[in-house]
Structure formats: C-alpha cells, structure tokens
Design a protein around this nucleic acid. Structure first.
Lengths: 226, 226
DNA sequence: GTCATCATGTAAGCCGTTACATGATTGC
DNA sequence: GCAATCATGTAACGGCTTACATGATGAC
C-alpha cells in the first residue's frame, strides 16, 4: 500500500525519501506519520524491482508548488528554510527517486486492484481516491461503487447488532450507535461523489480525466497493454 | 489488543475459542472477523502466562444470555442449533477457558494502559470503551478525555491541510473535507459522553460502576500521548 | 557549541493475515 | 452420503512500528 502512495507522489515529480514522507503527512494526511523504517525499505524494494531509479544527488531539487507568496498554512519551521526562493538546494546528501515506465505500469496495477485484505480498509480506499484522477472515468466510478457497497454491507451488520443490543451496556451501545451513524454518513458522502461522477460522465462522455493516459478497464478487461 | 478483548469477554463467563470469535463479531463488531490463526495462539499465550486456564470439555456450556423468547437478531444458522433450550451441549471436543485472578489483573493493566502505538487508534479506543464499565469512574473519564484531546489535535492538522489545499484536486479535497467532518462529529460525540459521565459522577459520587472492583487511579493523566 | 531539522538506513518485534491440516456433528 | 457448521490448531508471510546507528547543515 505504501508502494502505491510513493508511486503516486512520484507521478508528478521526482522526490527523495524525506520529502515523500513530508508530503504524505502534510498533504495527504494518510500515513499520518509513516516511519522511516518503513519508507526507506519500500523505496529500496521499488528500486530493486525497477519501478523507480534513485540518483545520489547533492544539487537543488524541485520544490513544492507553493504559490510563493501567501504561505498561510502551518510548517513554521520550514518557512525559514525556504525563504531563499525557488530552490532550497543544499549540498546535503540525498537520494532522489524518479519513476520509470515500468513503475507507472505498476502504479496502475496497484491502483486498479483490490488490495489483499488485512490492510486497513478506509486507508486503502482513501489512498486510491486521492489518486483517482489517474483512473479512467468508469474505473473511478467502480472504485466509488465498490466502496459504497462494502459500507452498505457493513451497515446491515451494524444494524443487526443494534437490534440485538438490548442487553448491551451504555458504553457499548453508544459505540455501536455512533459507528452506525458514521457508516451512514460515509455512505451518503459516497452517494454524492457517485452522483457528481455520473454527471461528469454524461456531460463529458470522453476525457474527463486530468491524466494524459488514464487507466482501468474494470468492465471489459481488454486494453491494458504494456 | 486481542488479549484485552479476550480477557474482557471472559470476565463474565467462561468460553471456548470459537464462541469468543462469534461474540467479537456479532456483539462487539470490533475485530469484525478475527482469524483463528490469530485467536488460538493468543489463547495459548494467555494460558501459558497463567491469565486463563483451559479445560478440555465435552459437556454442556453456558449459553449466551439471550432472553430465551424473542430472538429477533440475525444468526439464522444458529437458531436451529439452539432451539433445544438452555444448553446446546454436544460431545464435541472444545477447550473452555476461564479467567484467573492474575488474568483479571492483567485485564486491568491492559485496559488502563495506553497501548503502544502501531495498533489502530480507533479500534483500540473502541475496545476500551466497550469494557469501560470495568473502569473506575475517573479512569473512564480519563479515557474519554484522552481520546477527545487526541482527536482535537488531529482536527487541527486536518484544518491546516484544508487551508493549504488550494491546489489539491477535487477527489483529494473531498476526502480531506470529509475526514475533517468525521473528526468533528467524533469529537462532539465524545463531548456528549464526557458530559453524561460527569453528570453521573456528580449525582452519584461513589460506585457508579457495574464492576465489583473497578480500576484506574489515573487522576492527573493529562498531556501524555506522543 | 549545542540544538533542531534534514537525511538515510538497519534490526528486531508486534499484531494481524491467509493458507494449510484435521476432524467431529448435524441436517437433509 | 454429503455439505455446512463447529472446533482447534500450525506455518508462512505482510505491513507496519520502535529502537538503534550515523552524519551533515543551519540557527542562535
């Protein structure tokens, strides 16, 4: 799952490990505080597998596309470090990773696939949604609908629990009820997303996507060539 | 964490592995489908550690405290198996576990402690809340307040993200916004719980608890949690 | 000169998963 | 007789964590 996140960030530009972590934390919010003990090995695996190439770099590196004028968000610590301007290039040793063609392919596969459970449901979905712009419209819709259905099944279970919850104590009951409500809200959020997605597709039957070459042929698995 | 859940269930009555799993799934909802590959080793560990004793049993076992008349919830498969009456005693081989004194002590420790992170936040809190009746009133309040504070910090982060989310794409933005709203709702849910908890304690300064010997002398455990 | 931040990695461990292996009992 | 459910376990692996080890740079 972490691999997917990394490849997703590297779609747009090359980055080094430390910066990848920063973006995962500050921009996505997923992998709130991914540990280096997890991140660096993941990068190594990806490099070994040929999905990315890392180059030892001491030069200036592309910087976050901040509007350069109004830095209103947090990161007070970083402000000083960045005031120099476009590049914060120091001669510190870093390893900058760039995604390869085979890496882009892997990204598509990971993004389209249902991750082998055991992984956190919500996080996995959130990650895919964050990169949904790289999916073809109908695959995007599929992602949303699968999630919706999953939550609908969960809701059924939760309601059954509520029904037989006569002898549950106050705390457990409150917990169960709150879970149910959360699931309901998640479902209606998804319903709104699905609705707006369908609208988009009818208004603009082709190329609604941001990506140059989106992916995902969930319905008629055919064109995913190398 | 699973150990805590097991010990919690064994507080009330002795149970065998298969039944523990059923209750975790059908009653608590946490550990939705805990695998046997996880459950049985956990029971073994607990037995080795002296927290529970398991006895190979072929006789009748105490059954879920169902009102015996109106079985309205799911479990259609189990209905037939139980129609016999009070006991579904078969001669099947099972190992029934009973909690020991040292097990009860362990339960208290686990329930009071902040679990070493890496474990799922929400699940861990949910589990503790489900067994909150075994906590002393002030420890219960502490649990709720720590959770509230934790979520409040998260909300701050999320709002910062939203603020700097000008250049995020629609999907990511929707995700971030929905997360923020969810956190807000979680916080006000906790506020209600905290409120009602305080009320209880002023109305009934002593022995609000269900448990015979509740636990937790964590009076001034404010700003911990890394 | 010392502290915070930037930067990369390794090793050990935790807590769960699936897959595999085995067998008794009940319902139809 | 055969499938579903009940019942217990082992082995291998997945994906993350903390703790440890190392070092450069910049701010005060």
């Amino acid at each position: 799952m972490l691999e997917l996140a990394i490849l997703g960030l590297l779609q747009e530009q090359e980055l080094h490990g430390y910066e990848i972590r920063r973006r995962l934390r500050d921009e996505l919010g997923l992998f709130a505080n991914i540990s280096f003990g997890s991140l660096y090995p993941a990068l190594s695996r990806l490099e070994t597998g040929g999905a990315v190439v890392g180059t030892e770099s001491t030069g200036a590196v592309a910087v976050a596309p901040v509007p350069a004028s109004g830095s209103l968000s947090g990161e007070r610590a970083s402000l000083r470090a960045r005031r120099a301007g476009a590049a914060r290039g120091t001669k510190r040793s870093r390893k900058v990773y760039r995604i390869t063609d085979s890496g882009r392919e892997l990204f598509r596969e990971l993004l389209a696939a249902d991750e082998p459970a055991g992984t956190d449901d919500a996080r996995s979905f959130g990650l895919r949604l964050a990169f949904a712009r790289h999916l073809a419209p109908q695959a995007r819709l599929g992602l949303l609908e699968r999630r919706r259905n999953h939550l609908a099944r969960r809701l059924t279970e939760e309601r059954a629990r509520s029904a037989g919850a006569g002898q549950l104590d106050d705390y457990t009951r409150s917990l169960v009820e709150h879970s149910t409500e959360s699931t309901e809200r998640d479902i209606s959020w998804l319903d709104r997303l699905i609705e707006s997605e369908k609208q988009k597709q009818t208004n603009n039957p082709r190329s609604t996507d941001t990506d140059s070459r989106p992916v995902g042929s969930t319905t008629t698995t055919k064109g995913s060539e190398p």
